[in-house]
Simulated assay, not measured.
Amino acid sequence: MGVTKVKMVEVGPRDGLQNEKEFVPTDVKIELINRLTEAGFPNIEAASFVSPKWVPQMADGSEVMAGITRKEGVIYSALTPNMKGFEAALAAKADEVVIFGAASEAFSQKNINCSIAESIDRFAPVAEAALANGIRLRASISTSFGCPYQGDVPVESVVDVVKRMKALGVQEFDIADTIGVGTANQVYEVMSRVTEIVDPAQVAGHFHDTYGQALANILSSLRAGISIFHSSVSGLGGCPYAKGATGNVATEDVLYMLQGMGIETGIDLDKVIDAGDFISTYLKRQNASRVGRAILNKRANAVCG
């Protein structure tokens, strides 16, 4: 397979919590991020500087960024759709800003009310400002494997958006399965095509587990030389513009698989399970990670026994 070390990007505090209807208190978000930092993640999506009107859950981004206990070498990322968002991220000392476009025209129109080309033009000043300020620039390309509005998304569309983002100076490209419909052979094909234009070391797989294919798709991406993956503690999340899309693949499940394959991540699985238990308990819902549930049950039985 070739890949011996993987960089895990934990997206639970941002992508995972953004759709929660009840506001999650700032101190709970800070506690979650601090627990994930302690677990050893090299990159954590911590905040989103978007209009509170559209994503009220993320309205406290500045307070969250100010309250977390930062660890040297850890990248704390923030989503920034425009210059206003970028300026807030800069003030909050984000290490990385994330711009986002879609590979599907229909999704782009529904999600941000403009065409793909227009959306990328809008991001040009953000990209320029990020690079001028020495902040890492990442781009997330949603609906890379299928769209809730147009169905199939041609590989050429994904490649085209990657080329446009590369021209802006993007340093890392998230190829995202927003609705979780991708399958192993399709993922291998898309990742293989993307890595013809950008270095595989700059490409990440972002998989939702709606159809239960996320782990298989990560394996397929590894086969294509991809070594960066996004995941969400206890499988938190979904997408407000993709009805029925479940959470991102659970971090605990990905770590268990990679650990079993002898692939290094530098992350303490037990601490991630504790973090997943913490946030699931707060939200009063079942932990969506099967590995998390299994290990928590095992611990409970060991205590009882």
Rank of each mutant, 00 (worst) to 15 (best):
V155Q: 05
D121T: 14
I228A: 00
K271R: 14
G67Y: 10
V203D: 00
L215R: 04
V55D: 02
M8E: 08
E63C: 02
E196A: 14
L222S: 11
L215P: 06
G169D: 15
E128Y: 03
G292V: 03
G182L: 06
R223M: 08
V194N: 02
A132H: 08
P13T: 08
R299Y: 14
N34Q: 11
Y211D: 02
M58R: 05
D174W: 06
E118F: 02
E22A: 15
I68F: 07
T183C: 04
F123N: 02
L17P: 01
F207M: 15
A204I: 06
V162K: 03
S289C: 05
Y188F: 15
Y149W: 05
K163Q: 12
G292Q: 04
T265C: 14
V181R: 03
V187Q: 08
I141C: 07
W54V: 07
Q57F: 08
D60S: 13
V303Q: 14
P13N: 10
K110P: 02
A245R: 01
D274H: 06
D177F: 06
E105M: 07
G247T: 02
G260K: 13
V24M: 05
S144G: 14
F86C: 13
G205S: 04
Q171S: 12
V50T: 06
D177L: 04
Q286A: 14
P240L: 09
V272K: 01
K110Q: 14
G151T: 11
M1D: 12
Q57V: 06
G73I: 12
G212F: 08
L90C: 01
M261K: 15
G276S: 07
N185K: 15
A250W: 05
V74I: 15
A224R: 01
G260V: 06
I295R: 15
L36A: 11
L296H: 00
E264G: 08
G169E: 08
K5P: 13
L36H: 12
Q259G: 10
